[in-house]
């Protein structure tokens, strides 16, 4: 990657961030002294939303990259461990049973749900001899948790069901400034930790035996990946709802953009690209919808991500058979 490419990427990123801060239901001149309603909108709506998009986009994309590397499977993504579904179950239990509808309670329930699933995955992961077995376990967990949510939905009151469905659509616009800042800080820490693992991840692509013979502690690497991916996905799902496709699709977009395959380059580039894609998707949501709540985020992401997965399936069928 040339320095000019990085500068271009950061330029696009900053342009998108600024566009989010400036344009919306009302336009704000961010370079002039702010006061009154404009200041409130910027501090409590625009900046938290832009930060949530950056944090969620970068974090989920890093999860996707590291899980695709670990499983050697281009269709692996943050949701495969069942952590997103676990967060959904936590929210479903709270909202559909009608206990409370406060944002903080919902977020706590999502974190608790994803945390419980993560603990379950951590508890059983060592029993699986292969990465594929763990992948299948995650898929089965998704089915089971999904079925439990469906049962809760069938028994729920109309207004509670509506609230849950809205949460399930995903949004970057629900978090406070402190939540979004916390999310971004967590993603930066996770990214720096991942960056220290780049050589291990490169060696892992040569196969578990080869990686181990080159000095990689495979068991430790697996725990670190499961913990990082699980906690990031849980935290982001808590803050933004279950955000679709970003984790799965961004690593493929990055592979289209560059020939580099070393994780030394892929990790920062995936984080940057994920943030750009999330900001672009959210900008599309606001622009096309014409108002702050706009179109559902997951509808926009699915319209982009769905064809992306089909493309991966068609172009990499041979690899998937391996």
């Amino acid at each position: 990657m040339r320095r000019s490419h990085w500068l271009l990427g950061f330029g696009v990123f900053l342009t998108l961030v600024l566009s989010h801060l400036i344009w919306g239901v009302v336009d704000i001149a961010v370079l002039e002294p702010l006061e009154g309603v404009h200041r409130e909108i910027l501090l409590h709506v625009r900046i938290p939303r832009a930060l949530a998009a950056v944090g969620a986009g970068a974090g989920l994309s890093l999860c996707g990259l590291v899980l695709q590397t670990w499983f050697g499977n281009p269709l692996a993504g943050p949701s495969v461990l069942g952590v997103s579904s676990g967060a959904g179950l936590g929210v479903a239990l709270l909202v559909l049973v009608g206990l409370t509808s406060s944002w903080w309670a919902t977020a706590t329930a999502a974190m608790a749900g994803s945390g419980l699933v993560l603990v379950l995955v951590l508890f059983v992961a060592h029993r699986f001899r292969t990465a594929t077995a763990l992948l299948i376990f995650g898929l089965m967990l998704n089915y089971v948790v999904g079925a439990m949510i469906t049962v809760l939905q069938a028994e729920a009151q109309q207004d509670a069901l509506q609230q849950f469905v809205f949460w399930g659509m995903g949004t970057f616009g629900h978090g406070s400034l402190s939540t979004s800042l916390g999310l971004c800080a967590a993603v930066i820490v996770a990214g720096l930790v991942l960056r220290t693992m780049h050589r291990d991840l490169d060696m892992w692509t040569l196969g578990p035996l080869t990686a181990q013979s080159m000095g990689v502690n495979n068991r430790s690497l697996r725990w670190r990946i499961v913990a990082l991916a699980g906690l990031l996905t849980g935290g982001i799902t808590a803050a933004c709802g279950p955000v679709a496709f970003l984790g799965l699709a961004t690593p493929h977009v990055v592979r289209l953009l560059t020939k580099e395959r070393s994780h030394r380059v892929l990790i920062p580039l995936t984080a940057l690209t994920g943030a750009i894609l999330a900001l672009a998707a959210d900008w599309g949501v606001k622009g096309f919808g014409g108002m702050e709540q706009g179109w559902p985020l997951n509808a926009v992401l699915s319209l982009i991500g769905g064809p992306m997965v089909i493309w991966v399936l068609i172009s990499k069928t041979d690899r998937l058979h391996d």
């Binding site: 050697g72 490169d202 692509t205 040569l206 196969g207 035996l209 080869t210 181990q212 013979s213 080159m214 000095g215 592979r255 395959r261 070393s262 690899r319 391996d322």
Partner: peptide, 19 residues
């Protein structure tokens, strides 16, 4: 161990995209 023994597995890596 990696300082004492190197290992070549029977199956070469097929999915690695490293140069």
């Amino acid at each position: 161990r990696a300082k004492r023994v190197a290992f070549v597995a029977s199956t070469p890596p097929r999915t690695s995209q490293l140069r």
